[in-house]
Design a protein around this nucleic acid. Structure first.
Lengths: 137, 137
DNA sequence: ATGCACCCTGTAGCAACTACAGGGTCAAGG
DNA sequence: CCTTGACCCTGTAGTTGCTACAGGGTGCAT
């Protein structure tokens, strides 16, 4: 299959596929006589792994390690679990941080009663951290 | 006050302050005889506004608009409210998205019972979206 | 032969910084 | 007087994970 079809079946963008190849996440595929990239099932599956991991928020470097484990079935699974657990913790931390922001923003937005910028509570609050209830980031 | 002191009192990084000046968020300050930047209270307050807004997750362009309103007290406050409300909605959307990821990750991580990578449920799940319960991003 | 969809390489851009390299300034201590 | 150290300057390149060209080639149908 050519790159366009691989893009269609995986939902990835063509440029992204070439980018993954360039940074070594995907192996260089064979080429047709016309120098077109030619992919098989192994490539499709590897790209699906990468896209799925990216959708779950793993970084490229984390995915590199996960793929490496996947390529060496004799290794210990603990590393994969460690990466995933670490990532889960980061996601949880990010959620917690965004919730603080959300509450602070909601408080600020709720103060607007319309009128002129000079009297605006929103702008005033942005200039003055002491008006905040919590110590967001 | 010189740039180092401004950085200390606002918690911003020196390079970031110069960056804000370069992109026009902060006005060019006066210079001392030695060509050092020299800041006053107006700069401090403007930088505090910027840092606070960034901490709340506003983009540089949103902050540019907010600063513009702050510089024109006779304008309507509605624009500030519109920006803040829009941003709040984005934060809420991001939280919702991360919560889906978190649940999916927790499910994947929970499957690991140790052992070899070849049998690893974590790696298997990453390669296979059909094992997911929800349609995360 | 010409239009069109597809493919190629290589480079530049995005956000919002951060990190140098390579230099100047200034006050205190020996 | 000289050096050491802390500070400041400009300008450029790197970060992450793509995305968007520019400028060209290929392959098939009309």
């Amino acid at each position: 299959m050519k790159i366009g079809e691989l893009a269609r079946v995986t939902g990835a963008n063509i440029e992204t596929i070439r980018y993954y190849e360039r940074i070594g996440l995907l192996p260089e595929p064979q080429r047709t006589a016309a120098n077109y990239r030619s992919y098989g099932e192994a490539h499709r599956s590897r790209l699906a792994f990468v896209r799925h991991s990216r959708d779950l928020g793993f970084t490229i470097e984390e995915i590199r390690s996960l793929l490496d484990l996947s390529d060496h079935p004799e290794r210990d699974c603990g590393e994969a679990d460690r990466i995933a657990t670490g990532h889960l913790e980061q996601v949880e931390a990010k959620i917690a941080q965004l919730e603080v922001l959300r509450d602070e923003l909601a408080r600020i937005v709720g103060r607007c009663r319309g009128g002129l910028a000079g009297d605006c509570r929103v702008i005033e609050a942005l200039g003055n951290h002491r008006m905040c209830e919590s110590h967001h980031a």
